[in-house]
Every structure is written in structure tokens, then in C-alpha cells.
Computed example of a mutant assay.
Amino acid sequence: MRLLQALFFPPEQPGGVSSMIPYMQERFSSPRWEMELFSLPKRIRNKGSEEVVFDTFDWTLYQDSPVVTKYIQTYRDYLWWVKLRLHKTYDLIHAHHPIAGLAMKEAYPEVSLIQTIHSSYERELILNGRIKEGGLEHQFLTSLYKELEAKADCLLTVSESFKDYLRPYIQHPEKIDIIPNGFDEKRFKPVPHENEVPQLVTVCRLVPAKGIDTLLRACYELKKKGHDYVLHIIGDGPIRSELEKLAQELGIYNETIFYGYTLHPEEFMPFFDIFVLPSRAEAFGSVFAEAALSSLALVGTDIGGIAEQIEDGVNGLLVPENNPVALADALEKVILDPAYRYELARTASEKAKSEYSLSRSVNLLKKLYLQYEVCS
């Protein structure tokens, strides 16, 4: 079977897709499977010029929005790059971004398309204050879900909670299948260690949706109670300077280390003790599975895919979003009780190995792919 994995970002970019798809290739290296990866390089901008027409809605109703016009131009660029670079035929295309899926179906209308929706761009934009709920951009971006439903032969997503999120925007939500992201255990090598001062770590893009402001305020509460800790923030983004300023204002800057962007944070994670990320939205939350495989205790918000990965008090701790005091209380529990912290980490690691292994995800995908080989 000739299979094309259509990404949007290049495989080396951070995120849930990049944590799985590039590592799948070796699992498909057999005479039965021939798998390629395709993505849009960052240098390709403003190349495409084709007229864009969708089957289920008129996108020009929203063209007064710069966000929408940029999205449409990116779609044109992706389609231009597809037609320039791809000249093979494929038995099946699996797309991992709406732009990738729509462009591939335009270029290969006769090839079956599996579309995974990994996250919600509109939710991130709303939480990051870039668009308004119910505005032109929100209407356009949610309309794309019905277009994807019309174009794809199969819709996938990564969690039950995100399937529920998609429900109002498509006609047949019951047909959506769920395959969580999978992680190659060989990438994660837990290291036995004892840190005299508990080491907290978070890994994310520094945007409002990730709730790092809540984390900093929780750390202020910890310091106020006299607890020693170090907070490591791995990642970069548009609000980094605001967060650094907040850490200074709260008097916790000396306990906080801002690393900036790091390509392979899993290489550092095993040396920390507690992974914490108080996100305001997560379709899945790949970094929690990665932290679990690194044998860290998990603390996260009771939302989306995080709440599906963590059973509160069993393999991690869950707290309400936007609640620094509750987050500080949860962190205090795992800071003060190393044995409890170890037990949470051990259970989280076992669950991640059984439910979020790359082998499991690959096996589920192979079964799905073979259905389309039979049908073709």
C-alpha cells in the first residue's frame, strides 16, 4: 500500500503530530507498506493563486477578516506545493491538518482520505485573545469541520472530549473514530535520581491558552508557604516577556528558569520530578503522555484530553482551570510526599505504556488503512 502522511508543519516542529508521525515510518518499512511524509516548508508563502471554492459553505462571506484571508492563502500555498512536488499515485492519504486534508483531496480527488483533527485552532485563537467567540473567524474555522466531513472518507480525532467538541459542527459525529497519539518508548529513558529540592517542569508554547500565568501564581503560593522548589519552563512564544515580568513581580524569578524553545525536551524531562501544565484547553495533551513515559508525577487541569489521561489521585492530580490556589495545593501534596509522588509517576508510566504506545497506535492505524485497501 502506497501511503502518504500529509502534515502541515515540517516533522521537526513541536506538537502532538510531530511526536508520533515521524516515528511511525520505521514501523511501516516492509514490502507491504510504502509510506511518505509531506509538509509545507516555512519558506513557501504567497505562491498559490487558485480560486478556492468549498462544497459546504461560501468562505468569501468571511473574507473581511485578515485571519481568514491568511488561512485561505496558506491553503493556496499548500495546494501549489502539492502540485509542484507530488507526482506519484497513492492508495491512501492520511492528513493531519485541515489545510493538508482539503488540499490533498483537491489534488487527489479519487484517492481515499483519512483526516485526523488533532486540535482546535479557533479555541486557541479565542483563548489567546486573537479572535472573538462567534466572530467571523470563529464562524469560518468551525465551518471547516463540515467541509472536512464532506471531503474525507474517514474522520479521526484524538480524544473523547474533542469528539464531543466537534459534535455541533458536523452532521454525523457518531462516525468519528478515536485513535490517541502514540509515543515511541525508546525515546524516553527514565533516570533514577534524587533531587534535594523538588524540580517542577512544564513544556509548552508560551501563549495564554497554556495557563502559565496560573502556574506562576501557584508557585507564588508555594513560596509564600515556605516550600522550596525550582520551576523549569521549556518553550517559547509571544508572551514570554510578560511571563518573565510576572515572575519578577511575584518575587519568584530566582526560582524560575526560562529555557526557550528546545527541540527534544524528552531528553531533559527524566531529571525532573513533577510535570505541571494548567492548560485552558487541550484536545489530547501529548506532553502529559511524554512526561508520564519519563516517570514524572503529573499535575494538570481537569479539562479535555488531560482529564482522559489522568485519573485524579491515581496516576496524577487534576485541578480546576484558572485556580492558582488549587494548583498550589496539588503541587504541595507531591512536593511534600516523595513516596506519593513516586507512586503517581509509576502508575502514570504504566498507563502511558499500555494506552499511548506507538505500537498500539500503529496497529490501530494499520487495521484502518487495510479497510481502504480492501475497498479500493
Rank of each mutant, 00 (worst) to 15 (best):
N181T: 11
G182E: 06
G182M: 10
D184C: 14
E185V: 14
K186C: 04
R187Q: 03
F188A: 01
F188Q: 01
K189E: 00
P190T: 08
V191G: 00
P192G: 11
H193A: 14
E194A: 14
E196R: 15
V197H: 10
V197C: 12
V197L: 10
Q199R: 14
L200D: 06
V201D: 05
T202R: 00
T202F: 01
V203N: 05
V203F: 05
R205S: 05
L206R: 03
L206W: 03
V207M: 07
K210F: 02
K210H: 06
K210C: 02
G211V: 04
D213L: 04
T214S: 11
L215Q: 02
L216R: 10
R217F: 00
Y220F: 15
Y220I: 01
E221H: 15
L222P: 05
K223F: 05
G226M: 12
H227F: 15
H227E: 13
Y229F: 15
Y229M: 09
L231T: 06
G235E: 00
G235I: 05
G235P: 04
G235K: 04
D236E: 12
G237F: 06
P238T: 02
R240E: 01
R240T: 02
S241N: 13
S241F: 12
E242I: 03
L243Y: 04
L243A: 00
L243P: 02
L243M: 06
L243S: 03
K245G: 11
L246P: 07
L246C: 08
L246W: 06
A247R: 11
A247I: 06
E249Y: 12
L250C: 07
L250Y: 06
G251K: 09
G251T: 08
I252W: 03
Y253R: 15
N254C: 08
F258Y: 07
F258A: 08
Y259P: 04
Y259L: 04
G260C: 09
Y261R: 13
P265E: 05
P265H: 03
P265W: 01
